[in-house]
Design a binder for these strands. Structure first.
Lengths: 121, 121
DNA sequence: GATACGCATCGACGAATGTCAATCCATGCG
DNA sequence: CGCATGGATTGACATTCGTCGATGCGTATC
């Protein structure tokens, strides 16, 4: 749902310099969605968290596994995890008194695809 | 150069909850590099700018082509373009009194690859 | 029930970010 | 040379973001 299409750039004539320019807003919404997804990855701690979760066998990790490696306080780690969940990259599952986080299967791949399309249009 | 490898997560034993945890800092540097790259894409305006530049035939666009579509002031557009250049996603070429921006060939693709690797380790 | 533990939420604070108006630096043209 | 034009830089400002300590909530253990 966070994953989007790609911003399109229809062309039309403008006054000046070098030729055709763009009239419409180049899919502002699509760009905003993409940016929102990338913003979730725009922090070292969050990239680390994703990598660690992915490296754990079972693809699961509880917060206590994540706090130490990233060198941040528990509230901060929880904060980052929430961002990743909201971005659709992680899922949270409460089991007993631990919360287990795991990757959303196609999420990163699909995001990578969206990235590639920007180039290819 | 901005494109990096992937953060690794070596495992070891920890006190508590659910099993093995991580000792080392999980390639802080790699994570930081990746995050730095994604930060460049973490703004709608910049995503739009990339898309527009890519859609122009010749793959070039001068600032005057970009100001209108994104609906931002000229200084702001210049600012975003500088960020994209610094991130290694665009190149700037001054020709006459216009500055032409174009995509760095493999940049986005390579970034997408790095993204995919986070999942696959 | 009381207590301990894992984790989320809240409030606060400093740092970084996006934006614009004003200005400055080139380059081209008269 | 003087002037206009495209674009970058500067300075200021509001907003967002990352971080932590303190606190609250739910779940297991005694």
């Amino acid at each position: 749902m966070t994953t989007t299409d790609l911003p399109l750039a229809p062309t039309a004539d403008v006054a000046g310099c070098c030729g055709p320019a763009v009239t419409r807003a180049v899919d502002t919404d699509a760009a905003r969605e993409l940016a929102r997804a990338f913003k979730a990855l725009a922090d070292p701690a969050r990239v680390q968290l994703l990598a660690i979760v992915a490296s754990q066998d079972g693809g699961e990790a509880c917060v206590c596994d994540l706090t130490a490696p990233v060198g941040l306080s528990q509230p901060t780690v929880s904060h980052h995890l929430k961002i990743l969940v909201d971005a659709g990259l992680l899922t949270r599952e409460q089991r007993g008194r631990w919360a287990y986080y795991s990757l959303v299967p196609g999420a990163l791949t699909q995001l990578a695809a969206s990235l590639g399309e920007v180039t290819r249009l």
